[in-house]
């Protein structure tokens, strides 16, 4: 009988837990390093965390369920507008605003999923684009509620824990966002490893086989859509709290497409990949756009082509492979 390669067979629950804790420690360390090393860029870093939540949410449906979507900003924008409108109407507690964003994203996810899951493949992709464009247009037209093309402005969230103001330097917003990201990341790790997460991955691999096991795809995928909406909505709410502005760009096709690019860059079906892709894309965009504001997309495009051609599993897949090769070396060197 064929035997599995030893390095792949060696994973144990203890090792998994160790890797998870190391991963979390790395996220926290990188986050805190960002706080100390880039004190003048905390607004940008908070925006990065907000978009990372969007990309994580996209990974749930694209990477784990195989649903094609170019409309994820609809969920992000719903969260952003809901939090913004709530804040302007007197609900200023930041945690409550995050919950409102999550609820708005989840409800939008429920509606979007109900429509999108009726189709597959390219028609599904077209539906996602249509939905985000519809919401974009609705937000533009409903100026009395959303501020139209001017957007919502003037939100003043209450101080965090009643102590830390969301000030111009963005320190409170950044640490708040970092805490939120870590909490969401842990929750999503548990989710994708649960039997429910396995059913989703099974559906992505072979939907017919899953149905032969007595599991209906639609309710499972719809549930994931709602969870994805809640996560994206939290990202949108964080963006609204930190920038205190909500514009039409938060519910745009462009943001949806960028999120997909970040996900492919980092690696589909891997939560770390979603984070890595977001950091690399936004860092390149931030640095290169400052150097050459007219041609920065050229570099991003070249980077993406290189990743797709030479690292089809994304940056996280390549890092995984490198780690596996390194882990194999001492065994070969042994007696």
């Amino acid at each position: 009988m064929a035997q599995a390669s030893a390095p792949m067979a060696a994973a144990t629950p203890a090792r998994d837990l160790g890797r998870d804790l190391a991963g979390l420690a790395l996220i926290l360390a990188a986050g805190l390093a960002g706080y100390w090393l880039f004190p003048d860029n905390l607004s940008f870093l908070t925006r990065l965390i907000s978009v990372a939540l969007l990309v994580l949410s996209l990974d749930l449906i694209v990477g784990y369920c195989g649903i094609a979507s170019l409309g994820q900003a609809a969920l992000y924008g719903a969260g952003a507008y809901a939090a913004g409108i709530a804040c302007l109407n007197g609900v200023t507690e930041p945690f409550l605003l995050i919950l409102i964003g999550a609820a708005a994203g989840a409800v939008t996810g429920l509606l979007m999923g109900t429509v999108m899951l009726r189709a597959h493949g390219l028609p599904q992709l077209v539906l996602s684009i249509a939905i985000v464009q519809l919401l974009h247009e609705a937000a533009n037209k409903a100026a009395w509620l959303t501020g139209g093309s001017d957007g919502l402005a003037g939100m003043v969230p209450a101080p965090l824990f009643g102590l830390f103001e969301f000030d111009l330097w963005g320190r409170a917003a950044y640490l708040f966002g970092l805490g939120l990201l870590v909490a969401v990341f842990v929750a999503l790790k548990l989710l994708v490893r649960s039997p429910f997460g396995m059913v989703c991955r099974g559906l992505k691999e072979d939907p017919l086989r899953v149905s032969a096991l007595g599991i209906s795809a639609f309710p499972v995928l719809l549930r994931m859509f709602v969870i994805s909406g809640a996560v994206a909505g939290m990202g949108g709410a964080l963006g609204a709290i930190s920038t205190q502005v909500v514009g039409l760009d938060s519910v745009s096709f462009e943001l949806s497409a960028n999120a997909l690019v970040m996900l492919v860059l980092g690696g589909l079906g891997n939560l770390y990949g979603a984070l890595i892709g977001t950091v690399v894309f936004m860092a390149v965009e931030h640095v290169v756009a400052a150097i050459d504001p007219f041609h920065w997309m050229t570099l991003v495009g070249a980077l993406l082509i290189a990743i797709v051609l030479f690292a089809p599993r994304g940056l996280s897949g390549t890092l995984d492979e490198a780690a596996r090769i390194l882990a194999r070396r001492p065994r070969r060197a042994g007696p």
Binding site: S194, M198, V199, G202, E205, D206, R209, L213, G214, I215
Partner: peptide
């Protein structure tokens, strides 16, 4: 057989749990 080749043995079994 049609097992899910991208999932581990345990993960495959989780899918069957309903």
């Amino acid at each position: 057989r049609e097992i899910f080749k991208g999932l581990t043995v345990e993960e495959n079994l989780f899918v069957g749990l309903k």
